[in-house]
Nucleic acid binder design. Structure first.
Lengths: 210, 210
DNA sequence: TAAAATCAAACAAACGTTTAATTAAGTTTT
DNA sequence: AAAACTTAATTAAACGTTTGTTTGATTTTA
């Protein structure tokens, strides 16, 4: 049998609660209660709490990689357009799966060696290598500057997105948008963030130092 | 009596372990063992584990604010130089107190309402207001563009710094610096990050869109 | 000798996991 | 088609640890 109803329900609730309260801050009893299943079902389906976390990671492992590979394969698109679409893809994933990316952020911070953090690091390495290919292509075509610090550039994209995402209520406050519906507000902030990052990346990749 | 040896020792160990393993991931027994004190001393000096966390926050509450205020007060320095020094101050604080800022990052993610998160939000509001003053001064002098999204710009600085800090081992790996001593490596990455952020801020604040 | 500091021990509560029994679903045998 | 059997799903209860905190006695300090 594959993916019972209750099994997927446990997985989704776990993702939500891990994001909200952290791995250590979430008990299997919390998960069981919210998913409306017996506690024993978690061990029954996933083996342990730790393996439940791994299962959450498994679910999200390949999305960005596929996007990047199809970008590289495209030989008609301009380099700068590829970078813009790269930003779009990342932000699409981030805002579409906020709760998961909060878990990633938390796991990233914990430097304990687990199967989940290994998966994460491997994902990061692979994606960074693909981004490198896109940038090098732009440099070969003479559109981008030489000496781009790609890891630092990626840190700005991921870091800015994370920062905005983890302090969304703060941005709502400073922009005086307390009344705006949450969904509309997120759309707005995503739009702002996209433009912001695109203009930064353009500066990093093309503007000569003065 | 004020600040016994053991009391400060508990505070420092707590900061270190909270940063490493998170608040929920750190037990008072862990803290007591590493600080080489009896478990009961934690309740004796701080009342509870929660209040111990608050005490850690208390210790760090005012550093950046003072730096910003002295920057605003200076009426000789050029606006761009002020922004550059703002970046220096923030990164100085971040790299000097990494473990504390990891705790901040974790608390920021947890949206539970505690005394500690309140302190954090208040700090953020105040500092953002001060940064706003510095930018507005530059705009009045005609050095900076109009329509600067200050919260977004700050998100880029804080977010990039956080991202680099939480994934330091990754940056060591991708830069092939596995052999470099940790201290030297951190100096290098801090230097890189500083230049990176300054060039981004210059672009944000002065380059006209093309 | 009075107050502060320190300690081992105990507390109840919460933790992740396992057990053993029961129900539901599916398959095989009559 | 009914009965017998087998496996999967589900449950309440219990398991042994670990959790944060408190107690009450003892030592140190002033």
């Amino acid at each position: 049998m594959e993916s019972t109803d209750k099994k997927t329900q446990i997985l989704e609730v776990a993702q939500k609660l891990f994001a909200k309260n952290g791995f250590d801050g979430t008990s299997v009893r919390d998960i069981a209660k919210e998913a409306d299943v017996n506690i024993a079902m978690i061990s029954y389906y996933f083996g342990s709490k730790e393996k439940l976390l791994e299962a959450v990671f498994e679910k999200h492992s390949n999305y960005i990689r596929l996007q990047l590979e199809s970008l590289i394969a495209d030989d008609k698109m301009e380099p700068m357009q590829k970078v813009y679409q790269l930003i779009d893809s990342y932000l699409q994933k981030y805002f579409g799966q906020m709760s998961f990316h909060k878990i990633v952020l938390r796991e990233q911070m914990a430097n304990k060696l687990s199967c989940a953090t290994d998966m994460l690091l491997e994902m990061k390495r692979r994606n960074q290598e693909l981004v490198k290919q896109i940038i090098k292509e732009g440099q070969k075509k003479g559109v981008f500057k030489k000496n781009i610090d790609i890891p630092m550039m990626m840190a700005t994209m991921l870091g800015t997105a994370n920062q905005v995402m983890t302090t969304l209520p703060f941005y709502k406050e400073v922009n005086n948008l307390a009344d705006m519906p949450e969904e509309e507000f997120q759309k707005l902030i995503k739009k702002k963030l996209t433009l912001h990052l695109k203009s930064i990346f353009k500066a990093i990749l093309t503007y000569e130092e003065q």
